[in-house]
Write a protein that binds this DNA or RNA. Structure first.
Lengths: 188, 188
DNA sequence: CGTTGGCTTGAGAGGGCTCAAGGCCAGTGG
DNA sequence: CCACTGGCCTTGAGCCCTCTCAAGCCAACG
């Protein structure tokens, strides 16, 4: 039942009836539970995940043991470590589950087959990759700005995340400490 | 003479002889001169540029008048404002020439035609978009680290840029002031 | 030579960090 | 039903990294 995935794809490209029927066979469904790891530092990342329900995060643990969040992902978004996927090198990142639910997974080989069999899906990938790139550019610019502005940008751009996530996770995404975030909120 | 572009493409996908012959017709060559703007804030970005010779930068001017550099681009790299390209909205960024030379340009329509005519080029685009995404993720993590580490990462990853660029440009890329960069260098 | 752009150096200020303690709530076991 | 525990958030005090503002130097260039 990858209705959500189909929606996402059809939002950017069109597929024939046949292609729409073929699509699900490339993916595997997986239930997720809170605190479960979809990827651990040191492993080669095997799958790209599309979230049907729940919430995940990708983060690194730096030399001082601090967790830096690269991205959150909820229903209708993708998450993976692209670097490890493409290079087949051990990942520097972890992906874990903040809210249990269900995801679709596809491995590199299947994905390549999919691209060859349904070129429109490769176009879809090209487009969402570009959009992800744009989002990261925006984030880089915001990382130059003071903590308060970063936080305000976050809650206006992702109000739905602000409500679902504990504050210390948001702080780790904004690149500030929990304490600083707490102080920001009290003088908002 | 887009030999450099062809190299870049063939590094990631293969093209038939015919496709290789068709390719150049999609692009226009353009000489660039120092201080020239390829894109100005407020304009809709019309082209993607592939640099054959020279060096460009993409930057924003923030509310305080500070220039924040999003990317540098030299021979064999692309540069554009993807956001403005895709949405056809006025750009928030400037792209200017730091070192004159020559670029190839292609507009949105031609690019779409190119994707349809030579699907392998769309795959090439998908791949370089993903690589660009990975590079930005790395940069986001480094922006969390102290200035010294950012600088050291920069000079080891992009030694060729460190030599070609004036220091205040590098500072604007690292997200620090010229003064701080100068002090970092003196106690390296 | 005088000007200009790029780099350096100094002094002081401030935003965000660290370390530490305390409060609040939900879940759990006696 | 209540005490306890652990997770999460808040608040305070002091510090440090980086910024701002200001001045000075040097090389390139008209």
């Amino acid at each position: 039942m990858p209705g959500l995935l189909m929606d996402s794809i059809l939002q950017h490209v069109s597929l024939t009836e046949k292609e729409q029927q073929r699509l699900p066979s490339f993916f595997q469904s997986l239930r997720t539970r809170k605190h479960q790891y979809l990827l651990q530092e040191g492993q080669v990342c095997k799958y790209e995940y599309f979230i049907l329900k729940g919430c995940c995060r990708q983060f690194e643990v730096d030399a001082e043991g601090k967790e830096n969040v690269l991205q959150f992902s909820i229903e209708g978004w993708w998450i993976t470590d692209l670097d490890s996927m493409l290079t087949q090198q051990p990942s520097l990142f972890n992906i874990d589950v903040l809210e249990g639910g269900e995801v679709l997974q596809i491995d590199k080989q299947k994905l390549d087959e999919l691209f060859n069999e349904i070129p429109a899906v490769e176009r879809y990938y090209r487009i969402i990759s570009q959009r992800a790139f744009i989002a990261l550019q925006r984030r880089i610019l915001f990382l130059q700005k003071p903590a308060m502005e970063r936080y305000q940008e976050f809650i206006t751009r992702y109000p739905f995340l602000e409500q679902r996530l504990p504050q210390h996770q948001i702080a780790a995404y904004l690149g500030i400490t929990r304490e600083t975030l707490s102080r920001l909120r009290s003088r908002k």
